[in-house]
Design a binder for these strands. Structure first.
Lengths: 216, 216
DNA sequence: GGCATTGTTATGCAAGTGTATAAATATCGT
DNA sequence: ACGATATTTATACACTTGCATAACAATGCC
């Protein structure tokens, strides 16, 4: 690779910038070649640096992958949180927005899925990853459960703890299942189709109309 | 590894038996150490043979993994098909049985999931695998759609093609989502809980009772 | 019992992996 | 302008991977 005898020119980038570049390069590699294709050399080339630099910013490859995973999870939950935070909207509209936020871009994305699958496949053999996932899952489900409780309460409908639990599990499954379908076969669905189906299914489950504003 | 100078004793097994053993060993390795942990040496050790033998039964590691994947898919669809074939039961009961079959053992299983995740994560970088998965997915969804059509027709309810499509997508998502939850956190659910939630959600979606026999 | 067949082992190899380390150079404070 | 610093490169190393090949031995046939 070294033609002749000159050393490669380079620029010093700010620490945060480089870390972000490396993370982004990792995501690109995983998206294109799968997790096993995300070697330190491939990542470095993608980021326009040499392989050794990775270990200057991360203790090892493992940590870089975890950072990349955290980045993805962060982007996903960011969208969902934004939908939840909608002030001035009633619980029903917030639930609908939450479902829709998880079923459109940038959450529904093939590269996100690729990373998710790679990590989740290892959850089993890597205990640390397993608890990380379980906490994320339970956190997500708890949010759903709280939202459902709010909706039903606003509707004046009582719900036992067991019912809430079942609803949360079901809604979580609907979101996850549609998310996977969208990630793997995004071209088969119209733009808002998955979100519409998700909302409609939750409506049927809760026997509610989530699209109209609350009656006073 | 060779102590002294004697060669290892061995037995000649029948071809089918050895192939099956190797596939089973592969599944064990994937389940325990994830797909990257399924090296030819680990698989061979698990099967009680030496690594070279693998290439006597398979053209390469890739083919062995595909055979293992096919084995898993076969077991999963076998259960679903059995539920569908239930003669003497009405469409509603068959639909309920289909949902339940996909949400209990042996389909809901951590090692099955581990393999699935490993393969599906690569679907994107491996076009052949992507096609295989898409066909499997569409086949599954078509079965669901046909079943829903049967149920609604038996109920005397008309349904447009678009409605059937949406129902099939939603039910597929419900099954997939609950399947994942069960595989990843099986200990958090009671024995038939996932199947019950799945059936209840489908009931809500179709506004039907699937547990009781058809009214004549 | 001797012999061919071929399932099976043992060994080696080229390629690729993550990581360690030292040299080089871009950048900044002075 | 110059030297200190630490970012970045280049190279090497130990290890693992899948695969190729040759020696070996278990089995069946005559």
């Amino acid at each position: 690779m070294n033609d002749g005898s000159s050393r490669r020119k380079f620029r010093r980038e700010g620490e945060e910038r480089r870390r972000q570049d490396l993370i982004e390069a990792t995501l690109d590699c995983v998206a294109e070649r799968g997790l096993p294709g995300a070697t330190v050399r491939a990542i470095a080339q993608r980021a326009g640096v040499t392989a050794g630099l990775i270990r200057h910013y991360f203790p090892g490859k493992e940590e870089l992958l975890q950072a990349a995973y955290a980045e993805i999870v962060g982007r996903m939950t960011e969208q969902a949180k934004a939908a939840l935070a909608m002030e001035g909207a009633g619980p029903r509209r917030r639930l609908a927005a939450f479902v829709a936020a998880n079923l459109g871009p940038p959450v529904v994305d093939a590269r996100v899925f690729s990373l998710w699958a790679g990590f989740i496949g290892r959850a089993h053999s890597d205990p640390a990853l397993a608890v990380a996932h379980r906490e994320g899952y339970l956190g997500f489900r708890d949010e759903v459960e709280a939202l459902v409780a709010e909706v039903l309460q606003a509707e004046g409908r009582a719900a036992t703890k067991a019912e809430l639990r079942r609803h949360a599990i079901a809604i979580n499954a609907i979101i996850d299942g549609l998310w996977i379908e969208g990630c793997l076969a995004g071209d088969m669905f119209a733009t808002r189709e998955l979100a519409d189906i998700g909302i409609a299914t939750v409506e049927a489950l809760l026997e509610l109309n989530l699209r109209e504003e609350e009656k006073t």
